[in-house]
Design a protein around this nucleic acid. Structure first.
Lengths: 228, 228
DNA sequence: CTCCTAAAGTTGTAGGATGATTGGTATATA
DNA sequence: TATATACCAATCATCCTACAACTTTAGGAG
C-alpha cells in the first residue's frame, strides 16, 4: 500500500512558502517583514505555527528578528550559516586545503572562460594591491588581495564554485586575515601578475602552474605560522 | 556606551544546547528524545520555547518528529540538508564540475597520504566492479564504482573534503546514477587500475594525470547525454 | 528646537486546551 | 492459542489568551 510517508506539517508548509518568497526576491534582503499579526492572517495559521516557521528560518540564517522592532531578511541562502557551523567544528588546515583546491580549479576554468571585463577587474585589484603596499596600508592590501582571488573564482563562471568559495572565505576570514597579516605586503604580487597574464592569454597550463605556486607559498606561510 | 548587541533568545539557547548534545553524541543518531513535557522541565522553558527550538533543528535536518510517536535524532550535521537545498536551485553541470574538482584534489592528496589499508579497500572495490560487470549486474557495478571513488576521497585524509564530497554525491546521486546507467560497464575500469596503481605507488603526478583523464571522460559522457 | 515621557507597536515567553496520529494493551472471536 | 478488533494512553500539532520585554513613535514640557 506504500502510504506516502507522512503529511507535511503546517509549519514546514509556511516555512517553505517563506523560503520561496525570499528566494524569488519578493522578500528582498534587508527588507522588513510584515508583523506577525498580519502574517498570521496571510498564511492563515496561528501565531505559534507562524513563529515556529519563522524561528526555523532564523536559525537557518535566512531571517533575523529583533524584539520590539521586527523581522528582516538576512540572506537568500542558508548555506553560509550551515558551512560556518560546520567549519567551526572542523580543522582549519583541512578547510584551507579545500578552499585552495577550489581556487586551483577556478584558476584553470577562469583561463578558459574569462571575459574581457573579468581581466579588467583583475588588473584593477592588482593596482589596488600595489597602491595599498606603497602607502603601507595593510588592511587595504589584504582586502584587495582577497578581492583579487575572489574575482578569479567569479571569472570561472561557475556559481556553485563561487558560492562555496565565498562562504568558505567568510567562515574562515579571520584566519586568512591573520595569515596575511603575518606575511606583510611583499609575498605574491609577482605571482599575481603571472597568474593574471596566464588567465588573460587563456593559457590553462600556465594558470595551473602559477596557481599551484601560489598555493604552495600560501601553505608554507600557514605552516610557518602554526609551527612558529 | 556600546551595549552588548542583544541578549540571546531563550529559543536559541535551548537550540544550541540541543546541538551540543547531538554533536557530542549524548543524543546519538537514531535515538529517541525524551517527550516534550520532560524536556520542558530539563531546560526549564515553556512548551512554546521548546517547540520553537526543536522545530529549528528539524528544519536544519538534525531532528525528525513524528506525531504520536516522538522525536528522533536524524543527523549530527546540518550540512547535508543545507547543501541539498542549495544544489536543488543550482545548475547540475556546475555542481558536477565542483564535485570533480574535489575528486581531482582528493586523488593527489590520496597519493600522498594513503595507508596500506586504503589501498586494500580500493582494490576490493575494483574487484567488486569487475565481478558485477561479469554477471551484468549494472546496479551493483554502479554502487561499487561510486564506492571506489568515495574511497579515494577517504584516503585523502581530509574530513572537510570528504564531508563536502559525500554530501554533494548524495544531493545529485540520481543524476550520477543516470549518467552511469547510460554508459554501461565498459568505460573506466582501465583508468581505475591505473589510478589505483599511481595512488599505491604514491605517484602524485601519475594520479593527477589519470584522474584528469577520468574527469575528461566523465564530462564527455555527461555532455553526450545532455546533448543527445 | 531639544529632551523627556508616555503610548503604541512588535517580538519573546508562558500556560492551557483541543485535535490528530501512533503504539501498545486488552478483549473478543475463531 | 492465534488473530483481529476495539480501546486507551502517550505524544506531537495546532490554536488560543495573556503578559513581559524591547523598540519606535508621538506628544508634551522646558
Amino acid at each position: 500500500m506504500l502510504k506516502k510517508t507522512s503529511r507535511v506539517s503546517l509549519v514546514e508548509q509556511v516555512a517553505s512558502q517563506m523560503e520561496e518568497l525570499i528566494g524569488n526576491g519578493h522578500w528582498a534582503v534587508g527588507n522588513k517583514l510584515p508583523p506577525e499579526m498580519q502574517l498570521m492572517e496571510e498564511f492563515g495559521v496561528s501565531r505559534n505555527t507562524l513563529r515556529e516557521a519563522i524561528r526555523a528560518l532564523v536559525h537557518a540564517g535566512l531571517l533575523e528578528t529583533k524584539q520590539g522592532s521586527g523581522t528582516v531578511v538576512r540572506s537568500k541562502s542558508s548555506l553560509g550559516v550551515a558551512l560556518h557551523r560546520h567549519f567551526e567544528k572542523s580543522s582549519l588546515i583541512e578547510t584551507l586545503e579545500v578552499r585552495l583546491a577550489l581556487e586551483r580549479e577556478a584558476a584553470q576554468l577562469a583561463a578558459k572562460r574569462r571575459s574581457e571585463a573579468d581581466v579588467k577587474k583583475l588588473q584593477e585589484y592588482i593596482k589596488q594591491c600595489q597602491a595599498a603596499a606603497e602607502i603601507k596600508d595593510l588592511e587595504a592590501f589584504i582586502s584587495a588581495d582577497i578581492s583579487f582571488h575572489q574575482m578569479i573564482v567569479k571569472a570561472a563562471k561557475n556559481q556553485v564554485l563561487l558560492d562555496l568559495y565565498e562562504h568558505m572565505t567568510d567562515a574562515i576570514y579571520t584566519s586568512i586575515h591573520d595569515i596575511m597579516l603575518d606575511s606583510q605586503f611583499s609575498y605574491d604580487n609577482e605571482i599575481h601578475h603571472e597568474l593574471l597574464e596566464a588567465i588573460c592569454e587563456q593559457d590553462i597550463h600556465g594558470a595551473s602552474t602559477y596557481v599551484n605556486e601560489y598555493i604552495h607559498t600560501f601553505k608554507k606561510r600557514f605552516t610557518n605560522i602554526t609551527e612558529g
